[in-house]
């Protein structure tokens, strides 16, 4: 049975697209046929993060409007042949996505794919609503920062009341916390909310912590999901998250400050 995962946050710039690209690649690398859909109509960016921006011919809205078939619009990833990208449209028509149309495309994808990752736009407008509406699982991407935590809480309220599962009185969406841009050394100094602080407020199942990392910008610069940078801390953190999501028991990493005594002493 296919599962639909929404990557959401409310707030912009917290790492939704980075996370969508990384976990979609992670799931595909683990042998599951995966599609990742950009719901940010008008501000398409997943294609850039996945490095397929020059191969976009048709998009999500073309498929909804039946101007192209799903197979014409899906772009096969260059690094993994089990991963496909459905890019967003660059149209400025904010009503381009319809609930009926999105439902139809997802139903068609479900026949062929194991996981469908929906990269939500920021905000709580139509694109964000439709990205989460059909979800089975929600990855709530949060930064250890007040506005992000507040917006995540707001999104949790919407997931619990405005989704298809909520409306049809089905089992609620499984919600998971992904804490991104985490700096253990700043947490230690009392300058940043800790994992425990954020969990005290949001009471969510923690899927993983992604440390603040140079590798994320390097990955987006080159258009390769950061999970493929297997030596990097962020890449490993995402690999752990995919493994945990698939049911493996992996101890949490990147929460403690691991710098050695001398590096602390002399900075760096």
């Amino acid at each position: 049975m296919a599962r639909i995962i929404v990557v959401t946050s409310g707030k912009g710039g917290v790492g939704k697209t980075t996370t969508s690209a990384a976990i979609a690649m992670g799931l595909a690398k683990r042998g599951h046929k995966t599609a990742v859909i950009d719901f940010d109509v008008g501000l398409r960016n997943l294609d850039l993060i996945m490095g397929c921006e020059r191969r976009v011919v048709y998009d999500f809205v073309n498929v909804i409007n039946e101007e192209a078939t799903l197979n014409q619009a899906l772009i096969r990833d260059k690094n993994c042949n089990l991963l496909y990208i459905l890019p967003a449209s660059q149209t400025r028509d904010k009503d381009a996505l319809s609930q009926e149309g999105v439902g139809r495309v997802l139903d068609e994808l479900k026949k062929d794919f194991k996981y469908i990752v929906c990269d939500s736009p920021a905000g709580i407008e139509k694109g964000a609503h439709l990205a989460m509406y059909f979800a089975d699982d929600a990855f709530v991407v949060t930064n250890p920062e007040v506005s992000s935590v507040r917006d995540s809480d707001r999104m949790l309220g919407l997931l619990a009341s405005k989704s298809r599962r909520a409306e049809q009185n089905e089992e609620p969406i499984n919600e998971f916390l992904l804490l991104t841009r985490y700096s253990p050394d700043r947490v230690k100094l009392g300058e940043m909310l800790s994992v425990d602080d954020v969990q005290d407020i949001l009471s969510l199942h923690l899927l993983g912590v992604i440390p603040e990392s140079k590798s994320v910008l390097n990955a987006s610069n080159s258009g390769t999901p950061v999970i493929l940078d297997e030596k990097s801390d962020a890449g490993q953190a995402y690999a752990d998250i995919v493994a945990r999501y698939l049911g493996e028991d992996r101890p949490h990493r990147f929460i403690e400050d691991k710098k050695g005594f001398f590096r602390k002493l002399f900075g760096g």
């Binding site: 920062e145 007040v146 507040r150 009392g190 300058e191 940043m192 909310l193 602080d197 005290d200 407020i201």
Partner: peptide, 14 residues
Amino acid sequence: GTASVAKERLQILV
């Protein structure tokens, strides 16, 4: 640190 202030403000607000 300011993190404790952040947590307190968030708990009230949320």
